[in-house]
Computed example of a mutant assay.
Amino acid sequence: MKVMLADFHKFIGYSGGIENVFAKMASALSERGYDVIAVFADEKTEGEPFFAVPKSVKLLNLYHLPGEKAVKPSGLTKALREVIRPFSRAAARDQNYRLLYQAKAQLSRLLEKEKPDVIVSFREPTGRLLLDGVGTKIPVISMLHNDPDEIFRGSPAEERKALEKSAAIQVLLPSFISKAKKYLHYDHFIAIPNAVNAPHVTADHLAKKDKYTITCVGRLTGRTKRQHLLIEAFAKLAQGHPDWQVQLWGDTYDKPYVASLKSKIKKYGLEKQVFLCGTTKDMDAVWKETDIFAFPSHHEGFGLALVEAMCCGIPAVGYRSCPAVNEIIVSGENGILCEDGVDPLSQALGRLMDDRMLRRTYGEAARSMAEKYHAEKVWEQWEGLLRRSLGIRYSKGGVS
């Protein structure tokens, strides 16, 4: 079977969760004997992907295809998008789609040349271009990488209608199916979690250390990940816990937010206890130092880093209101879910910081509960979906 993975988005040097899944799926399917084409869309022509893609995968940049005229997204359209964004999320996303639509001809010729049996679309604009812009009849499995409320609230109607032509729509958690149905007139959903390659690390919560570490992993951004809440929560604990530190790992592209985090660190005098660590490809080294995983996100689609930490036997703290996190963390069993705000987060962290036996108990449960997300089990589910997709024919409002 020839499978095309399509994520018409920047990929070179990007270290986000979707890019991680894109590379992992390409590698996993190739290892299982599939003929894999992985297509992204990046104006860059130089540099390497942050997440490695094996040479057995044909990796192509839609904007710079061999033998094709390079696609240069309109600067005017980009500028208009930024003007519109504060007033209408849907209109801004339409502008994004117009930028992508400039590669329609290149995509049509690529599909004709490669003739994939099935396509896996990683983002909604990608699916829109495939199913509406190009109008492909190749089965397209559309992935939803976030909470459907976050994806579709304020999304363009044309985008939703296009996705309704999908051969199947994959969500990350069973609870997301009912959410997606609020926005899509569609029935062929399937819940498959992200695949997690379990790190080769097991936390030892009874070991005595000079420094104990609270870790948070995710791009530094105020709207989603909200690392500022962790800094403020730790500030209430730092003086009484001089042997504890916080490490914030993640991409620092949001320069104003990074500056605000540095300002908070300085304000609370935490320069020797809170660190902005950037990105790394050696996550095993990070997990080896970690005693508690803190995840103060507003919303998540899954939380790869959260489950990786759990695989290592690391207990986690998150907000009860955060989708996905509030299903993966079972409060009182493998971690703690707290109410919104700085004080509840601080209290939850303090409880684990002061009780190494509780950290071990929750950590052991976390490692056991995370087994269902192990890569081998997840890729088996994907293989079943890919095989079934070949027998699917399109019908109005979904598939039959």
Rank of each mutant, 00 (worst) to 15 (best):
L358I: 10
K10V: 13
R160Q: 10
R32I: 02
L111E: 07
L237A: 09
A233D: 04
Q273L: 08
R359E: 04
P242K: 05
F8D: 09
F275K: 10
K396P: 09
P116T: 08
F87R: 11
A316K: 11
A198Y: 09
S27A: 13
D147I: 09
T136I: 00
A259F: 07
G75I: 08
K264V: 13
I329T: 14
L163F: 05
K165N: 09
E333I: 10
E383D: 15
A23H: 01
I265N: 12
E159P: 05
R219K: 13
S175E: 14
V378K: 06
S263F: 10
G350T: 03
E114P: 10
K372P: 05
T361Q: 15
I265E: 07
V140S: 02
L306R: 09
A28V: 06
P54G: 01
V21Y: 01
I265A: 11
A167I: 04
E46F: 10
E371T: 14
D204S: 11
Y97I: 01
K137V: 00
D42H: 03
I177V: 15
I141S: 08
R81F: 09
I329N: 08
G218M: 03
D132I: 00
C322P: 07
T202G: 01
S121K: 04
V53Y: 07
W244F: 12
Q381K: 14
T252F: 04
A70E: 11
L385S: 12
P174V: 10
K137T: 00
S27K: 11
T224N: 04
D251N: 02
P125N: 13
S88I: 12
L352W: 05
A375W: 12
I192L: 08
R356I: 01
R226E: 08
R223P: 00
E376W: 11
V307Y: 07
D251S: 02
M4Y: 05
G303E: 14
D42V: 03
V330W: 11
D254M: 01
E43C: 06
L130T: 02
A305Y: 06
G363N: 05
A324M: 08
Y319T: 04
K179W: 09
W287M: 01
V325N: 11
K266Q: 15
R153E: 14
K179A: 12
S321G: 03
R123C: 03
P344C: 00
L60Q: 05
Y212E: 12
S155R: 09
V71H: 01
R93M: 15
Y97D: 02
L358K: 15
A324P: 08
Y34E: 03
K44L: 04
D35H: 07
V274Y: 05
Q381C: 06
F22Y: 08
G303P: 14
H298N: 15
G363T: 02
A207M: 07
V71L: 01
S400L: 13
F152S: 04
E376V: 15
Y183V: 07
L80D: 08
K182A: 10
P66H: 03
R93V: 09
V83N: 06
E159H: 15
R359C: 06
L229Q: 04
I84W: 06
A162L: 00
S166F: 08
R98A: 02
R359A: 02
D149F: 14
